[in-house]
């Protein structure tokens, strides 16, 4: 059902955890639909220096979360905002069709984290 890459990221997820005092936190999904993704970022000079995730969900939800953290690390905020859910799925060698809708939200969570960072920054300014 899942590609080898999905299974690899599911079995050995990268960047799992929380960042205390994160500069931005993004959360998407809800427990009703069965997927929640939470992404934490640390930003310096407009670049994502550290990124971690916590996810409740199926194999695809966990693998996409892991993949998006790898893709976004050391990227500028603008580059991070350009990452799309379908690029994440593609990087994993594809997802089963039904998973494209329900569990492919990791880029959305990343965008939410970036937007949250920018909002926090404005408040400080």
């Amino acid at each position: 059902m899942y590609s080898e890459k999905v299974m690899d990221h599911f079995t050995n997820p990268r960047n799992v955890g929380e960042i205390p005092n994160a500069d931005g936190v993004g959360e998407v999904g809800n427990p009703v639909c069965g997927d929640i993704m939470k992404i934490y970022i640390k930003v310096k000079d407009n670049v994502i220096k550290d990124i971690k995730f916590k996810t409740f969900g199926c194999g695809a939800a966990i693998a996409t979360s892991s993949m998006v953290t790898e893709m976004a690390k050391y990227k500028s905020l603008e580059e991070a905002l350009k990452l799309s859910n379908s690029q994440v799925a593609e990087a994993l060698g594809g997802l089963p069709p039904i998973k494209m809708h329900c569990s492919n939200l990791a880029a959305d969570a990343l965008h939410a984290a970036v937007n949250n960072f920018r909002k926090n920054e404005q408040v400080i300014k």
């Binding site: 079995t11 409740f56 969900g57 199926c58 194999g59």
Partner: peptide, 25 residues
């Protein structure tokens, strides 16, 4: 609680245990 059925199922399956879940996934 706090675990999604399919990820548990896949994890068990990797240990060659075949089970079932009522999860949406």
């Amino acid at each position: 609680k706090c675990i999604e059925g399919e990820s548990m199922l896949i994890s068990l399956d990797m240990k060659r245990i075949a089970a079932s879940t009522g999860s949406a996934c």
